[in-house]
Nucleic acid binder design. Structure first.
Length: 427
RNA sequence: GACCCCAUCGUCUAGCCCGGUCAGGACACCAGAUUUUCAUUCUGGCAGCGCGGGUUCAAAUCCCUCUGGGGUCGCCA
């Protein structure tokens, strides 16, 4: 029976590296129809926090990484104690104060890693290992080995930073008489500068990416590409499709650098393909948080705004940023755009436009565009000449979706109001 | 410092195991087309097997140095 586990410690948020480890474990279990165990390593009573645990579980669910069993090490202290005492009785361990320490016999240790092949260590370099700490709690390696053995984990898939722990743990398996599982050590994920991924080099918590509006499918898609490839030059791949092709032996050995550029691109790909109604639903919480809409939001009118921006977004927060003009009374003027496009006095032209716009019966995209072009022709101006000024006056920005659609979206009253305000001229 | 891991375009990677296809794709970047702006999209381009030795008719691929990067050396996990 194939059984793997992801064993986070609730002393911090679920970070990108942990998520990737969880993902590979999950894929390994699913492709082989095995079990995926989640084990909360909360032996450090002081640093472990319920809020972190909840956040980790939440992030896992959000990513779609469901587990078959869950355990808490804090509930298993008796088991650890019992086995440590047994080792004490057998003379394989000794006491130092209240602590129980394992004697490490001298021998050569061979680890066969599924990703890296054979790795040998000399146990002469390994110190005797603390099994139970003076405070009665188990040391990490001991609890880890006990659980992996008792939970019948068939393959331990974890980060490369655990390679050095492995020979120590193998000594514990041997002392306990447990069967040693398979091991696979995943390459680490590094920050943009090649050093360890940290808050300094960008967001590390999965929840941070969620808050920025990355889709779980996209994040998972990006993460699986770090150290593994689905083949056939495919990069945008669903989890289901990826699982079918997953093989732990095909995982890369070299560390990978996390690239926010590529994540943005992949997320954009997903955002482009997503159903518009679904996109509206995803956007609502972001809009509510910003105070742009309230509880009883009109989805159909929201949908028309979203449609304008669909295909331009690389993450959900982009919408909040770029579509703000549709939700607030006065546009948030971009200083640079304002200075560049509204510096020249265009009140005369604006006045005429305002008059013509006011006279329009149906204020739709096409009639607005037609009216605009007619006016420009009458004034002897090229159509492009006033576009920027109007865009900035109406949306506050020099960039955005089709101008005439933006104006139609705002409606006659608001659009004219903003045009009037631009040069404080009243039509 | 000791021990361990790793090394293909700037980045993620295919190819490596079972030596022989101009070293393929993607992101980023640059140029052009489309677009009233920006983005999208399309087309094209730039760019890589870390160094040095072997083995071989033939090496990105196998072996060894070196160099470089990373990890671990807690009664943290």
């Amino acid at each position: 029976m194939v059984k793997v586990r992801f064993a986070p410690s609730p002393t911090g948020f679920l970070h990108i590296g942990g998520a990737r480890t969880a993902l590979f474990n999950w894929m390994y279990a699913r492709v082989q129809k095995g079990k995926f165990v989640l084990r909360i390593e909360d032996t450090d009573q002081v640093r472990s926090k319920k809020e972190f645990e909840e956040e980790i579980l939440d992030s896992m669910k959000w990513l779609g990484l469901d587990w078959d069993e869950i355990y808490y090490q804090s509930e298993r202290f008796d088991i650890y104690k019992e086995h440590a005492t047994k080792l004490l009785d057998e003379g394989k361990a000794y006491k130092e104060g209240e602590a129980i320490i394992l004697k490490i016999p001298q021998q050569e240790i061979k680890l066969y890693d599924l990703i890296r092949g054979e790795i040998t260590f000399d146990s002469a370099l390994i110190k005797d290992q603390v099994l139970m700490k003076s405070d009665g709690s188990p040391a990490y390696s001991f609890a880890c080995v006990m659980d992996d053995a008792l939970m019948e984990i068939s393959c331990v898939i974890r980060g490369e930073d655990h390679i050095s722990n492995t020979p120590k743990q193998m000594m514990i398996y041997n002392a306990l008489g447990f069967k040693i599982p398979k091991f696979a050590h995943l390459p680490l994920i590094m920050g943009e500068d090649g050093s360890r991924l940290s808050k300094r080099t960008g967001a590390v918590a999965v929840s941070d990416y969620r808050k920025e509006g990355f889709l779980p499918d996209a994040l998972v898609n990006y993460l699986m590409l770090l150290g593994w490839s689905p083949g056939n030059n495919q990069e945008v791949v669903s989890l289901d499709a990826a699982v079918k092709k997953f093989s732990i032996k095909k995982v890369n050995k070299a560390a990978a650098i996390f690239s926010i550029d590529k994540l943005n691109w992949i997320n954009g790909q997903y955002l482009k393909k997503i159903d518009t109604d679904k996109l509206v639903d995803l956007l609502i919480p972001f809009l509510q948080e910003k105070g742009y809409v309230d509880q009883d939001v009109d989805k159909s009118s929201l949908k028309s705004i979203v449609e304008l921006f669909k295909g331009r977004l690389s993450k959900l927060v982009n919408f909040i940023e770029w579509a703000d003009f549709a939700f607030i009374e006065k546009p948030n003027f971009d200083k640079e755009a304002q200075e560049k496009h509204l510096a020249q006095d265009r009140s005369k032209e604006f006045k005429i436009l305002i008059e013509r716009f006011s006279a329009l019966d149906s204020f739709d995209k096409d009639s607005i565009e037609e009216t605009y072009k007619t006016v420009m022709e009458e004034l002897g101006l090229k159509p492009a000449e006033l576009v920027h000024a109007i865009r900035v006056a109406v949306t506050g920005r020099a960039i955005g979706p089709s101008l005439f659609e933006c104006i139609a979206l705002l409606g006659k009253e608001k659009s004219i109001q903003r045009l009037e305000a631009a040069f404080s001229c009243v039509g």
